[in-house]
Design a protein around this nucleic acid. Structure first.
Lengths: 192, 192, 192, 192
DNA sequence: CGATAAACGAGACGGTACGTCGCGTCTTGGT
DNA sequence: ACCAAGACGCGACGTACCGTCTCGTTTATCG
């Protein structure tokens, strides 16, 4: 029952994925070439093409296979604490030296790259679904109205962080984060 | 005293810029090549390289030169109306057939491309400064507290729209927009 | 055991060589470009660069591969006859419609082009060594002194023809050839 | 009566010619570009094109204008001495550091470059005519038969040297030169 | 255990685009 | 009238990866 190789991948899939993410971090999306992945992972170019149609697909597979997209769902006892923890995790993802280039790259390529777009979409959808319990706990605690829209709350919070870091290129301070969380929470608390 | 050509650009700059944006919309960022710009604009490749070092620079110049980044600052009489108008304009920009491919592609590519990042940064900074009167009017009307942070409000609103359309790939309905505006406004209205 | 392709050359080497010599004859040395060779031979430019670093190398290989540099060593029974045959062959090479443009161009370019110079040097060295039997037969027949220097004799004879055709641009008549052969032979016959 | 500028040339012709020959010696024929001549001579590219159609023409004019092609006709008192002096001068021209690259270059380009070919042809023709007195003196002294062909003698001698240096890439020793002169002289002396 | 099919290594190839160089033409403006 | 300055179209350069394609050589699974 050697499960070492999943269906639909080459024998050295792990080496390929590792090389892919290394190179992506080192040289950026454009510096990431199939040939460099092949060379770095000690695999022949043909082998990669046998399994994936293009470098985006390799990258998508590498991301899914990696734990870069994994994140712990917080449970601090209060919605404010949970949202703050999430906001900090997002900020971390977008600024940490190892993850920032990868995440920026994937999002940049996503709009025109179905594979990467699918990864992003799936990631965010799954994330939202995993956030549901957090909001249900908050409702149970009376911290949130039943009518509140968790997706919108996360859009506002996560969007502000993404927007500020990637597009406005402005720092995201702890104060900014707590201010944004407060604003959104108070806004959601107000009756419709 | 024909001042027809600004300093630092080729004679057919306009044709080059037009071709650049057309091709960007048609083929996406990676499909946009210097040779295709040259061919489409009826200009020689060499001429483009004489003036810009890389395609990002051409693209940045084309964006600055275009009116895509122009936008009217609303003045509806209420902050809610103004923010809603802005939110609609942003949504429009990101979804309209002519602008969406260009804007989405540029914004997506910006984090990895210094020139494009600079354009985005400048654009958003200028935009924010032009939004100041809108917030000052709201404060004068008593719709907003003096302590409110306009930048954060715009980050939340614009970020949510951008995030939802480009990353989560979800529709942005009029109800969603007004809901988001309300949430943010009520959140900002609550005391700190 | 198909030995069809010699080591160190592309699969369509012959087509490339043929195109190279054709184009050299048609357009001269400077008009001979890698791109034109690629186009004419139906091979991609990249393929040529994969195997040769520059056009001189292609040209050198084409020359070596061709039979332009092949020549039959005469054996007419007398040194005078042999030298006359050689002189005629050289003249022919430098004036015949098919060979003249190629040979003249190559010889002219040789001094400035290491690869071509090497081809010329090798060719003339090999040629001289193949001429040795001719001179030995002449010595055996008593037509030539043992002290005579075959290399000098050939330098004088070949040099005169080459000089006259390529540099002085003057015709080389049969009378001129036999006159030159006679002069050299009689000079060589005289005691030192 | 300022004759400083000949008809059909720009004001800075001398600077252009000097730059041309310098660059030719420094960088070879291919490294000699119109743009580099213009830059070195402090003249605009346009000016050069106004007067000469291509770099060959500039080079031809520069050579004619220079004294590189000048040579003194020897008069040593004997034909053998005169020929030896000529042979040494030719060898010098082909091997001296300053002249060798220029001469090799011109001859290399000549076959396909009418301007340069004309320069070469003119040079050799004029040279031969200036050699006539040398042969007439020899005939007057009884060193040479009336029937001897001076052109052929010079073809053999000069051709051997050119051939040996440029094509066979072999050294030309003093012994070689005197041997060649002796051989040719004795051959010419023998009756037809 | 040995056949056989999948996976792989090696690398030549056609192709697109890159960014650069020098050519020769042209226009403009200044002596 | 001549020239400096320099933009321009053009052709070729040599390079980098792309994705495709044989062609043998492992592997590893199964009869």
């Amino acid at each position: 029952m050697s499960e070492e190789r999943a269906r639909g991948g080459p024998r050295q899939a792990s080496a390929i994925f590792a090389a892919t993410l290394e190179l992506l971090a080192e040289r950026g999306y454009d510096g990431l070439t199939i040939e460099s992945i092949a060379s770095r992972s000690g695999v022949n170019k043909t082998t990669i093409y046998r399994w994936w149609p293009a470098k985006d697909a390799v990258l998508a597979a590498a991301l899914v296979h990696s734990d870069l997209l994994a994140f712990a769902m917080p449970d601090t006892g209060s919605l404010r604490g949970d949202l703050l923890a999430l906001a900090r995790a997002i900020t971390q993802l977008l600024t940490a030296e190892q993850t920032a280039p990868i995440v920026a790259t994937v999002l940049a390529a996503a709009p025109r790259r179905p594979e990467l777009a699918a990864v992003a979409r799936t990631f965010f959808a799954e994330r939202l679904s995993r956030e549901q319990p957090m909001f249900q706990r908050a409702i149970a605690r009376g911290e949130l109205q039943t009518t509140a829209d968790p997706a919108m709350i996360m859009d506002l919070l996560a969007g502000a962080i993404w927007f500020r870091i990637l597009l406005r290129d402005q720092p995201v301070s702890p104060d900014y984060l707590s201010g944004a969380v407060d604003l959104v929470l108070q806004g959601a608390a107000a009756a419709h």
